[in-house]
Design a protein around this nucleic acid. Structure first.
Lengths: 236, 236
DNA sequence: CGCACTGTTGAAATCTTTCAAAAGCTGTGG
DNA sequence: CCACAGCTTTTGAAAGATTTCAACAGTGCG
């Protein structure tokens, strides 16, 4: 029990790291976030449905994805969520979650509106500002996704996405030496990149045998960032 | 001179129509917008560049597009702007214009921050609320674009886009009987839909000869909305 | 052990692009 | 008014990228 609680608090550090990079948090505020209530969801579960309001929910640990289905069963994954990401980055628009959010791994979700205590008002204000900055980033991720789908070849799409994920994970301290946890199946990659599963497989093979990336034990490593960047015109 | 001024004010009505559908405007406020200063730009001109702040600029008349170039010359058009649309729908994020905006036709741009007068403060507030609602719509257009690029075949993409444009134009009163002004070249369509110009041509031909749309004299008409909708799974 | 899911591979089919050329259209200057 | 340049649309044929179909190997789990 105690151990589980500690683990949960340790996971919260990623979220705190992401927030601290953007807004200043007092020790007290950090402590409030550390001890805020959280929700655990298992791998594969639907975290939020289309139309739900999740104004102040953040992913504290684990990965998730945003998906939309077409009538004929095709699915578009519009993006991936990593620790530190808000479930509804555009919530201040009054915009509810606009598509399904599904847990890719077991996830922990912190809803900061459930934080009580004397200084919670100011904390919510800080979080609002954090939200704004993060929303700007997510707008950029949308644009990245559009560039990939609209302009890139299959190999470029893959390279570009792998680089984007690396950048994002690095910012919250979840990379080491170009290597990061990689829980995405080839089917998810296919639905995100607008490719068939079979082709994703071939493209990954191509990147691997060109010595650009390596994949072992659920982790992915960027071996030649420079080549990947020029291949996919990735910037930043 | 007088004639040109009248024309300009008449054009402003489209913008007003768009705004009135969303927020209540007093006669006085409508008058302020009617007489607000405007900027005219000729066809083909760059209206705003990446990084520019255009917090309160709206297209009063004409069409424009949002584009981003890759190093190798490929271009992604992320969306089209029609009368009533803001140049920077996500400006309250502190987000500057994030890509180039180019005039497709001669355009008139109203910057509502240039409105003076006693009640301008309240008007700005109203406009801010309008902005929020419109931003929500534009988020949807982004998602539409992602679905097109990620899940649709060439014919579906085209059908879906033509339907979206029709819906949007209808909302500001710029359609009649399924017909609307259509200033887009096949090259623009290609860059928006992630297709080659040649293929766009063939796809249009296909839609025309299937009796689904008609194109004459710079106008496009939806002939069989129902079939187009089921073809592209367009909803709303 | 067997089932369900994920990854891998080959071959054929399909969609889309590229290349090349020509025709239509528009505005400009002689 | 014609000629011309420049842009847009159109068409055919060949090349290329990606998908589909089908089958099989690996892995984890009850």
């Amino acid at each position: 029990m105690r151990a589980a609680h500690d683990l949960s608090i340790r996971r919260r550090e990623t979220l705190l790291k992401g927030m601290s990079a953007v807004v200043a948090l007092s020790d007290d505020e950090q402590q409030q976030i550390r001890t805020a209530g959280s929700e655990l969801r298992e791998k594969g579960s639907l975290i939020a449905e289309d139309g739900e309001h999740r104004r102040s929910s953040f992913l504290a640990s684990g990965w998730a994805l945003r998906q939309e289905f077409l009538a004929d069963g095709r699915r578009q994954i519009s993006g991936f969520l990593i620790p530190g990401d808000p479930l509804a980055p555009f919530s201040y628009l009054g915009e509810p979650v606009s598509d399904g959010i599904v847990a890719i791994t077991p996830v922990e979700i912190v809803d900061v509106t459930h934080i009580g205590g004397p200084r919670s008002a100011r904390l919510l204000d800080v979080i609002e500002r954090f939200n704004l900055t993060v929303a700007r980033d997510h707008l950029q991720f949308y644009r990245n996704q559009m560039i990939r789908l609209g302009c890139h070849s299959a190999v470029q799409r893959m390279a570009h996405l792998l680089l984007e994920l690396h950048s994002r994970l690095m910012r919250v301290g979840l990379t080491s030496d170009g290597r990061y946890e990689f829980p995405l199946t080839q089917e998810m990659l296919a639905d995100a990149l607008g490719l068939s599963v079979v082709h994703v497989n071939r493209v990954m093979k191509q990147l691997r045998s060109a010595g650009l990336v390596q994949q072992t034990g659920g982790k992915l490593q960027i071996l030649n960032r420079k080549r990947l960047e020029q291949l996919s015109e990735y910037s930043e």
